[in-house]
């Protein structure tokens, strides 16, 4: 069954994506500068809760590939005014595919009802092809990928009018485990979050852009590089390291 998606957003091409982990005070300065140059994103209510449910297989093939520097994330995103204690809630869901490489990313997403999103996860619904990401996602699902980890955070987002530059600050970032779903789980019942794996003490600032950065953003980028506490892997990688006990909260994963 192919279901037309009511909303479809995709990057026109690979875009630069840099993440920085900074203190609250640095983040305030950065976002103040950003607010002087970019409007608030029209699509993101300030400080709304973003809940992202990540999928992987029992062999953790998506995570292992991500650790090697290239992988496609398969995730379901929801937005709520207050923080939900469950995921895959009724309402609008965004099925997102994100192809991460060292310095760039390519993202495609479909806004659908949660019913359709669940159907897609079960392999009963296919999505229109664009960059081939949906087909890759379907292969992962056929290989047994299911929801395994969740992040929740408050996002403040600024977007240029032509969407060539987007700067976000994520506060209160939390990582949760999600028990493996069983075949007889109700199709429409939300899934309760599992244990809280970790909370991020800092703020995650992300810059995403096409082409050249404007001068003020070049300066801001340099300031963030100087001020950042560490190289920042993706939220997916951090969540999975916590989930699998491969980090104890320090900078580097534990050696095996």
């Amino acid at each position: 069954m192919t279901t037309p998606a009511p909303a479809h957003e995709t990057d026109a091409e690979r875009r630069h994506e840099h993440r920085f982990q900074v203190s609250e005070s640095i983040a305030r300065l950065v976002m103040r500068t950003t607010a002087n140059n970019l409007p608030l994103s029209r699509d993101d209510r300030p400080y709304q809760w973003s809940t992202t449910t990540y999928c992987d297989t029992v062999a953790w093939s998506i995570f292992r590939a991500a650790e090697k520097g290239s992988a496609m994330q398969l995730r379901i995103r929801e937005y709520h005014r207050t923080r939900p204690r469950e995921v895959l809630n009724p309402g609008t869901a965004w099925i997102e595919f994100k192809d991460d490489e060292q310095d760039t990313s390519l993202k495609e997403r479909f806004g659908v009802s949660m019913e359709v999103a669940r159907s897609f996860l079960r392999g009963d619904t296919t999505l229109p092809e664009d960059h081939g990401l949906a087909e890759r996602a379907s292969l992962l699902l056929r290989d047994g990928a299911r929801p395994v980890a969740v992040t929740q955070y408050n996002r403040l987002a600024y977007n240029s009018l032509d969407s060539s530059l987007r700067i976000t600050a994520d506060h209160n970032l939390m990582y949760f485990a999600l028990p493996w779903e069983t075949r007889d789980d109700g199709d429409t019942e939300p899934s309760p979050l599992g244990s809280l794996l970790a909370m991020e003490p800092d703020v995650i600032v992300e810059m995403k852009w096409y082409g050249e950065l404007p001068h003020w953003a070049v300066d801001l980028h340099a300031y963030l590089k100087e001020s950042t506490r560490e190289e920042r892997p993706s939220k997916f990688i951090v969540a999975m390291r916590w989930l699998l006990g491969e980090t104890d909260g320090t900078k580097k994963p534990k050696k095996k």
Binding site: W60, V148, P179, W180, L197, L243, G245, E246
Partner: peptide, 12 residues
């Protein structure tokens, strides 16, 4: 990590 047990249960 070997795929034997539920990660969320072990996390709890």
């Amino acid at each position: 990590a070997r795929g034997e047990l539920d990660a969320a249960v072990v996390a709890a």
